[in-house]
Structures are given as structure tokens and as C-alpha cells.
Design a protein around this nucleic acid. Structure first.
Length: 672
DNA sequence: TAGCCTCGAGTTCA
DNA sequence: CTCGAGGCTA
């Protein structure tokens, strides 16, 4: 068989390249692929095979030429053709209004002003240079005037076109295209899982992961990272005649660039504010992190009249939310011993603003977790408050400070000096001493804060009463007198009476609360409720065998053994008798029996803030109709009641296909 | 035995 | 809220 004419080969190569570029465009830019990944791969493989056979016909903008540049020792500096300015930021509606006012004054007329809003991607800003439609080089933002030339790495990102789409119009001879390279959250999680399984330190956040990936010396490493890009504008634009930013975005999209689909154009600053509020909600659902919204005056002509101040355009602003991550110094890792004897390490931090609140401490879970995250005393660390409220220490911000060393749990309990144990296969270290003061104090804390929920008595007072020796157990609390309180600093007649009265009132708490407050290992609020319902009285519990206990729904061998063992202990039985003598309830009351109602067998979860109920009221109302109200969403959940500012549960419910009820639907459900 | 689901435990700030 | 682990079920 005769070899095909070179002319035919060239034609097929052109065809394949055009087709592959078309499919990349459908996939990345339009988010609407026409063919399967496998079909794409077949085309790609054909092109690769043909190019292998005719290496002379390989062009640098061929889809196969994304990886292959030899690793380089260092990055060359690359000067941007036009500077990459930075944006002034605003954080409030008032500041937005002030800016709009300034824009209006400078334009010196009543002409309408339109704004374009785009998400501000938290990634790595880059500048791409195209000559006659071909990608020539790309660089990081650097100082705004020159950055590092990372062209080989950028070429590996398939969302960056090596060749602009040719629509038959005249492409500018030189074009600077600007965008933000980022790592999608899904890819970031996988990336970190891989690092963890390889025993390497994880990346603290997607932005660092993206920036680090771009600065790899070996572009084949970058190629393996899940990077993408959103394009948001132009630098040098040689005669490109779009009149507005909005048109420019459209032009970019048509010519093969991935512009963000959520960009929007509005006609007033009030609409801008409204959109910013909406974005705050949408933000959580995106597969990439954004740290704000970029707002630009749409008209190029108006932009030109407004000009810039110190490379910062007067026609654009970055609306930023309070940052959800911050860096601060980890002063010390302190240990707190819990009511079960578990040693809990927590971080004492130099106070820092995160997400609008000042954070000074954060839990660190356990020794293994601390060292896996490479967290060390004395280091600068990254603190985050992501979707949730509770701050976490994510990891070190850069390299360790000299002199820092790996964290080791103390060998002895910091409170009682007993030797600390760590059972095989368990994550937590424990103080085995049952008489360790930590257990007493924390049991009391749990009683006043959770089990009995005594108003006016908190951790501080418990600590004081413990320290002066007045209260060393729950029964002691009920023997406390007003006279004793009055002897303490800061207690007046009135406050002392209030405290005593509310302690007295707490004797009325239901049986299951008493059970919960006894601090039986593996028995929390729910299991205590189950025990109360199934057995009814403390005496039946005292006499129950492991077999009887295990027969109860929700109680398996571990919990049954734990309960039986607890009631075998003489000291525990004495505690029960003492409490009984003091008048606490030792049997189930009428109100604790399960309710039968129209919602029996259904389960609901509540998230966010409701307008006409507190969470507690909504819970009580649902339970009064026989429904169960839990706090985690699963496939079995009947419905999620979502108020304002829903948390991560909303996403989970949507993923699990659980119906979401708004407040109106809840009202209807409750028949109100 | 795996894979859900649910529970327990410890947790932050204003 | 999140993690880890106990309990239940397919």
C-alpha cells in the first residue's frame, strides 16, 4: 500500500486539530460537550499517531503539544505589555454607594451608567499573550508590571486555547488576555487526598494549590493537576473595537475563552448591591472559591473618562466579603482534659479577624491530626472559618519556623499527673484516672450547661465553686446555700438568690436529662431518652442485665456493656441514691412518652434561621405532631426545613434528593 | 462485611 | 459543625 500523499496527511491533521479544538471549546467554554470523553480520546489518539509518523508536520499550537517542554531551572521574568493594575476594594453597601456617587460626579452628567458584575475568583492571576490568534506566552501577575513566565505550565491547561477560534474576522496582531487560574474544589479535595495517601503535606487551600501548580519546574507535574481558568478581560487589545466590557466578554467567549457564566450586567448601583447579596448565597454552591465580586463600569468610553489613580482604575471595584481565612501565629498548643478523660489539644492563637470575628483559639482534635497537618507551636498558621462557624487551623502558612518541632502529647495528665494512655487503634489519648479533677469539673459543666441547663450557672461559676471546694459533685450543687454564695466576691443578695432558685428549679428536669447528666460512657442525650422510654425507672436500669439492654433498639454490645458496668460501680449507685434523695426525678414522666400524630414516622432536619419560630420552637412543634427532628441529613430524611442563611445541610439535602421546605411550607405542614 | 445512618463528644464567638 | 465509631441492614 502506498503511503498517502503528504498533502492528504496535512489535510487530515488540519481537520483533526480543528475538530479537537472545537470539542475543547464545547467542553470548557460552553460547558456543553457534543461527544463523549472516549470519543474525544479517539480523535486525540489518531492525531498523536499521525504526528508521530510525520513529526515535521507538528505545529506548536497542536492540541497534542500541551506537555513536552523540558523542565526549566528557573522562570524568566516577563514584562506585561500593559500593566496589570489592582482594584480598590469595598466591603459595604455604603462604600459601593459612595463609589457610584464618585463615578457620577466625574462623568459630570446624568447619563446612565451600567455595571458588569463578575465573581472574583480566588486563584492565581495570569496574563496570556496571543499573536495573530496563537498563544505565545503567559506569565503570572507578579508586581503588576512583570511576572514570571510560566508558558509551558499554562499550555498544559486544556481550558486555555492554544489557538483562538477563527470566526473570519480580523484577529488583533497582539492581544493580552487576562484571567484567573484556579483549582476546582472537587479537584482540590482529590489532590489533597492523593497527597495524604502519599504521606505528603496537604495544600492549605485551593489558591495555594493553584499557584504552586503553576510554579512547577516540570510542566508534566502541572499537567497532572486539575487546573482551569476563568477569563475576565484584556490588556493590550490592538484595535479590537468592542464598546463595552460586556461586549468584550462576549467577544472573548466567541473566540474560545472560558468566561464565567454568572457574569451579569445591571443598570443601577442598587442592583449591584442586590446582586452582591445574592452572590453571598450562591457562593457556597460553586465548585471554586471566590473572595468577592468585581464590579466594572460597562462602557469603555466612560471607563476612559474615569481613568485610573496609581494603576487602580476608578471605573472598577472589588466587593469583598470578610475573608474566611487568615494567617496568625500559633502561640501554644494547650491541653484540656474532657469529662471522659480524653486529652484535647487546642491552639492558642494570636487573635486574628476571620470572617468578621476575632479568633483566638481553635480545637486541634488529636495528636495524629496535628502532625498530619504539620501544625507546630511557634509557626505562622492558616486559620479558616469555611461554611461553618467553628474556626479550624488548616496548616502552616509556608515553611516551618526554625526551632519548631513536631507536637507530642504529654506523657502525664496535666491535671493529675497520671500516666496518659492511648488504646490501640483509637485516636484520642486519655487520662485513665477516674478521680482526676478534670472529670469532676467537666461532669459538673456538662450538668449545668447541657443536661440540666441551669440558667445563671456556667463554666466560670462551676470553676470557682470547685476551686473554693464548695461544689465537687452534682449533689453538692443541690446542697449549695445562698449564705455560702454570699461569701464569694461579687455575689449580692439578688444574684445569689437567683442562682439558688434556678438550681432548685432544675430538680424538675425530666428523667432522661438526669440519665444523660450521669455521664455514663457512650450514653448521650438520645440514648438516655431511649433508656428512659424503654425501662421507665432507674431501678429497672440498676437491675438490667447486658442481654436486656442489648435487646433495646439502638443499643448494641458496646453500649450495653458500658451501661451495665457503670451501674455495677458502688460509687455510681451512691450518686444515684444521693440524687434521688435530693428530689431529682428517677422515673419517666407523662410528657416524655412519644407522641402519636399525623407526622409519626417522618423525620425532619432544620437549618438556618426561621422568621416566626426559633429552632427550638420549630422542633417542638414538629415533635408535637409525632415527627422526629434530627440534625443531620440523610436519604431517609423526610424534609429539610431551610430558613435564612442555610448551612452545608442544604447542599447535602439537594444532593440526596431530600425535599427542601421553606418557612411557608413549614407553616402549612404544621397546619397554621 | 460493607456501607449507610445515627449518636457521642468536643467545640467558637458574641 | 465535624469527626470517629457504634449499630443496623442488605
Amino acid at each position: 500500500m502506498a503511503a498517502p500523499a503528504v498533502k492528504d496527511v496535512q489535510a487530515r491533521l488540519d481537520e483533526l486539530r480543528a475538530e479537537l479544538n472545537h470539542h475543547l471549546y464545547r467542553y470548557h467554554v460552553l460547558d456543553d460537550p457534543e461527544i463523549s470523553d472516549a470519543a474525544y480520546d479517539r480523535l486525540y489518539d489518531e492525531l498523536k499517531a499521525l504526528e508521530d509518523e510525520y513529526p515535521d508536520l507538528i505545529t506548536p499550537d497542536s492540541p497534542t503539544q500541551r506537555v513536552g517542554a523540558p523542565p526549566s531551572d528557573k522562570f524568566e521574568k516577563s514584562r506585561h505589555l500593559t500593566p496589570m493594575g489592582s482594584l480598590d476594594k469595598v466591603t459595604t453597601d455604603e462604600a459601593l454607594a459612595k463609589w457610584a456617587e464618585d463615578v457620577r460626579k466625574r462623568l459630570d452628567s446624568d447619563e446612565p451608567v451600567a455595571y458588569v458584575l463578575e465573581p472574583k475568583i480566588d486563584g492565581s492571576a495570569i496574563n496570556l499573550v496571543y499573536e495573530d490568534g496563537v498563544f505565545i506566552r503567559g506569565a503570572t501577575r507578579g508586581d503588576g508590571y512583570q511576572g514570571e513566565d510560566v508558558t509551558p505550565n499554562l499550555r498544559t491547561i486544556s481550558a486555555i486555547p492554544l489557538q483562538m477560534r477563527d470566526l473570519g474576522d480580523d484577529l488583533p496582531a497582539v492581544l493580552e488576555v487576562r484571567g484567573e487560574v484556579y483549582m476546582p474544589l472537587s479537584g482540590f479535595r482529590q489532590f489533597n487526598e492523593r497527597l495524604t495517601s502519599e504521606g505528603k503535606a496537604t495544600a492549605p487551600n485551593p489558591r495555594n494549590a493553584a499557584a504552586g501548580s503553576l510554579r512547577q519546574k516540570d510542566s508534566s507535574i502541572t499537567a497532572a493537576r486539575p487546573l482551569s481558568i476563568w477569563i475576565y478581560g484584556l490588556g493590550r487589545r490592538d484595535g479590537l473595537g468592542t464598546a463595552t466590557h460586556w461586549e468584550t466578554l462576549e467577544w472573548l467567549r466567541e473566540h474560545g475563552f472560558r468566561t464565567n457564566p454568572f457574569a451579569e450586567r445591571v443598570d443601577s448601583i442598587e442592583d449591584v448591591m442586590q446582586a452582591c447579596r445574592e452572590w453571598e448565597l450562591r457562593r457556597a454552591e460553586l465548585d471554586y472559591e471566590i473572595d468577592g465580586i468585581v464590579i466594572k463600569v460597562d462602557s469603555h468610553e466612560q471607563q476612559a473618562r474615569l481613568g485610573a489613580l496609581h494603576e487602580r482604575p476608578r471605573w472598577a471595584r472589588a466587593f469583598k466579603w470578610a475573608p474566611m481565612t487568615a494567617q496568625t501565629k500559633l502561640l501554644k498548643i494547650a491541653i484540656r482534659v474532657g469529662r471522659t478523660g480524653a486529652l484535647n489539644p487546642w491552639a492558642m492563637l494570636e487573635p486574628v479577624e476571620v470572617g468578621g470575628v476575632t479568633v483566638s483559639k481553635a480545637t486541634l482534635h488529636n495528636e495524629e491530626d496535628i502532625n498530619r497537618k504539620q501544625i507546630r507551636e511557634g509557626d505562622l498558621v492558616i486559620v479558616q472559618r469555611a461554611g461553618d462557624v467553628i474556626p479550624q487551623v488548616v496548616g502552616p502558612a509556608g515553611a516551618h519556623r526554625p526551632g519548631t518541632k513536631e507536637f507530642r502529647m504529654p506523657k502525664k495528665c496535666p491535671l493529675c499527673g497520671a500516666n496518659v494512655v492511648k488504646p490501640e487503634g483509637e485516636a484520642m489519648h486519655r487520662c485513665p484516672n477516674r478521680d482526676c479533677p478534670s472529670r469532676g469539673i467537666e461532669t459538673l459543666n456538662n450538668w449545668v450547661m447541657a443536661a440540666a441547663d441551669i440558667e445563671g450557672v456556667g463554666e466560670q461559676l462551676v470553676r470557682r465553686l470547685w476551686d473554693v471546694g464548695l461544689v465537687r459533685s452534682v449533689p453538692d450543687l443541690y446542697r449549695l446555700t445562698k449564705e455560702q454564695l454570699l461569701e464569694l466576691d461579687g455575689f449580692q443578695e439578688k444574684s445569689a438568690s437567683n442562682v439558688i432558685a434556678s438550681i432548685e428549679r432544675s430538680k424538675e428536669i425530666p428523667f432522661r436529662r438526669v440519665l444523660y447528666g450521669l455521664n455514663i460512657p457512650d450514653v448521650g442525650g438520645v440514648t438516655a431518652g431511649v433508656l428512659a422510654r424503654e425501662l421507665g425507672t432507674i431501678d429497672r436500669l440498676l437491675g438490667a442485665t447486658v442481654e436486656e439492654l442489648q435487646a433495646i433498639d439502638g443499643i448494641g454490645p458496646d453500649r450495653a456493656a458500658s451501661i451495665a458496668e457503670w451501674f455495677e460501680d458502688k460509687a455510681n449507685c451512691n450518686l444515684v441514691e444521693e440524687l434521688r434523695g435530693l428530689g431529682l426525678r428517677m422515673e419517666i414522666g407523662e410528657e416524655e412518652r412519644p407522641v402519636e400524630g399525623p407526622l409519626s414516622g417522618q423525620s425532619y432536619v432544620i437549618t438556618g434561621t426561621l422568621e416566626s419560630y426559633t429552632r427550638e420552637e420549630a422542633k417542638a412543634a414538629l415533635e408535637a405532631l409525632g415527627a422526629k427532628v434530627g440534625d443531620s441529613v440523610s436519604k431517609k430524611t423526610t424534609g429539610l426545613v431551610a430558613g435564612e442563611g442555610p448551612g452545608s445541610k442544604l447542599a447535602k439535602a439537594q444532593k440526596a434528593g431530600v425535599p427542601v421546605l421553606d418557612e411557608r411550607a413549614l407553616q402549612k405542614l404544621l397546619g397554621r
